[in-house]
Design a protein around this nucleic acid. Sequence first.
RNA 1: GGGGAUGUAGCUCAGCUGGUAGAGCACUUGGUUCGCAAUCAAGGGGUCGCGGGUUCGAAUCCCGUCUUCUCCA
Length: 877
Amino acid sequence: MRLLKNTMYMTSNEIRIAFLKYFESKGHHIVPSAPMVIKNDPTLMFTNAGMNQFKDIFLGNNQPEFSRVADSQKCLRVSGKHNDLEEVGRDTYHHTMFEMLGNWSFGDYFKKEAIDYSWEFLTEVMKLDKNRLYATVFQGDEKDGTSFDQEAYEFWKTKLPEERILTGNKKDNFWEMGETGPCGPCSEIHIDLRDDEERAKTPGRDLVNKDNPLVIEIWNLVFMQYNRIASGELKLLANKHVDTGMGFERLCMAVQNKKSNYDTDVFQPIIQKIAHKANVKYGEKTETDVALRVVADHLRAVTFAIADGQLPSNTGAGYVIRRILRRAIRYGFTFLDFKEPFMHTLVPDLVNQMGHQFPEILKQQDLIVRIILEEEQSFLKTLAKGIARFDEYVAKNGSKGSVEGDFAFELFDTYGFPIDLTQLLASEKGLVVDMEGFNLGLQQQKERSRAAAAVATDDWVELIHQDTPTKFLGYKENECECHIVKYRKVTAKNKTFYQIVLDQTPFYAESGGQVGDTGVLENVNEKVAIYNTTKENNLTIHHAATMPDNPSAVFTACIDVAKRQMTANNHSATHLLDHALRAVLGTHVEQKGSMVAADRLRFDFSHFSKMTDEEIVKTEKMVNEMIRRNLPLQEYVDMPIEEAREKGAIALFGEKYGNLVRVIQFGDAIELCGGTHTSATGNIGFFKIVSEGAVAAGVRRIEAVTGNAAEEVVYAQQEQIKSIKELLGSNNMEQAIQKLNDDNAAYRKKIEEFEKQQVANFCKDLEAGIKDVNGVQVISKIAGFSPDILRAAAFQLRAAANRVVVLGSVFENKPNLVVAVSDDLLGRFEAPKLVRAAGKLIQGGGGGQPSLSTAGGKNPAGLPDAVAEVLNLIAEN
RNA sequence: GGGGAUGUAGCUCAGCUGGUAGAGCACUUGGUUCGCAAUCAAGGGGUCGCGGGUUCGAAUCCCGUCUUCUCCA
């Protein structure tokens, strides 16, 4: 319940809407947040800034659709100079997931308007106290040849007294996207949220950019006016852009007059909920406060990541999500005393709070809950195992006073046991963890990995300047004339290859699950094989082992048509499968992953139980029925996304779509899709599911084949059945196999009994032939039994007192020897010694336990001598 | 992608340097009666992930491969 006093402040939802409304009123086009999970950019796993979705515009690979844009962007940061996952929650202002409010100008307005808008929004719309605001301006950099940003300074002078306009160096006030590329000076707006008393003591201007949690940067206005080229030199850009970013949570804190982001209504409802469940109060104890913040923050991050299609896993981006989730579980486990899964129970509360603004989490709530629950269960299990392992270690090594770094690292590295938990457990036992040793192990691990993953990428060699994406002709053409726009050399693991960008291409770049095309780049003089095609942002990259001798020549790019056709068949079949699954299982089926290759297809989708055989058959039949109807491909290029949605086209969560989309339709199966498809479903021929299984909680995977490959599966099965029938000599396989099974069991039983009998008879015979050697009852015999029977007999015979048993046999042309000694003679004779000595005579070796040992060899003729040798040895002792 | 671990009875796992595959729970049958995981006895159940190799002998050692987990990138 909100206190009356607080109703004076805008809620976070109102603040977000006010921001978007304001910029809309200034001619900005409002775009939705891009997914937090990034595909098609190997340099980035998650959206970490508002500008990510516009990167291609800044890089000049793409043209903007609108010159003024604003949005609120979901972002995730887990590493970087100011963002270490381990720090989140310990202080009151770091987050993993946050929203970045931003407005952009692509070659439209520049410094004046950017500054005017930001000032007006903060002071007039948000009504923040002007006296608490500071602006920073770039001071210039001699080495770069850049000068003081007089322009920005002049504009700020119209808003602020000069003593509250500060200058900053290259580190704070010059923004660069990477080593090279567009960049420029930036102007930051800082706000001083301290009490008046504090402000009177120290002026705010002394605390700007000094890591004070209450004197913070609230908005960064970047003025992109340069392009940094590989030599480090700056060149003026023809089109100047504005890129701004304002931390939504910080803005809420300022507007709502709080001392921490976590005190705003963005976090408080969920924090209160967690506190209630944990039976603690927020604000009472540092330890539990940190844990509450960690859980609240991480819950948001994980929920949104899963909604955007990134499930926790053990590699790449999925691993980052798992780490975040596990960190929250572990804080809950240790400091909030949650010994049972709890995170998943909080999802509905978060959805309740944010589901209106972000419908993706509302729609996928069930899946999110299930996945988090499963992760919680499995992690609590690894915690339990780690604790057991730790206790075992302490029982053995507790007296040493410290926990060895090697052990702590092993626990962490192999068993996933968090190091801080190890430290906690250790301190409870009065032990100290050797962190130096632990860090050494971690360091070595990192170096190993880096060395293995080292990729050296050379600069692009630009042959033709082109600021539009490669024109893709592959929907219609299998080959086309082309020029190389640019290329670069890449070295990884001592292998070099080349990445080539063309002006236009028929090659489909790996995306949307469909594999990249292969083919050749050729002209009359030369021919280069393209072995893969991938996408990096908007660049279509052709991979080749070598470069043409004359890269500037005109080429013909030809794809491997057969492979493409099979891939297209599989891609179309995937759409039919998706459609059939929704019909058979329900509309909760959402695509969670897809892989379309020439020889097979794989489709991951949300569904909560194993598909029954009937459901699988029903799905197959439905797909095959659509194939037989030979539905023609209906392709709509550049259809407005709203129209596509009305048509009922299936879109993917976590996929970024423009305003104009490509729609692929086969009958009732309609999907937004960029892939290549077959002209009519009849080309697919035949569809067959080859496996169905689980990939994660609530996610199933189907693997299937089509056309030739499917035909082959059927033929292979037919062939198998035929040969089985031949082997059985019967057409009624079920009956014949049942009989075989029954017979087999009966025979096994009989053999067992027979062997038992054999051993018993054998023993009886042998008992009759006991000899006395040196006061010891000796049984020795050479027979034709298997080693197993020999051993069983010896085992029985040694039960009596004062006995040594020596048995030999030739079985399958190999000599075997068993020596057994009765318990009371164990001090006097050792079976292994005896058997080894005898083994030499049959050209073999042996050993075993003191009471019973075996040997085998290669010389059957030596067997009598071997037995005699044992008797000699007995006689000598 | 690299490192480490893991795979043994329906389930949870043990099996030390190679020597007759085990425990607990579950199951079957029988006995007992102390009413909600009762107890006693007997019993069934295992291609030791898969494929090679070394060895007289491999669950155990070596090589390859797959599964799952885990850390790093």
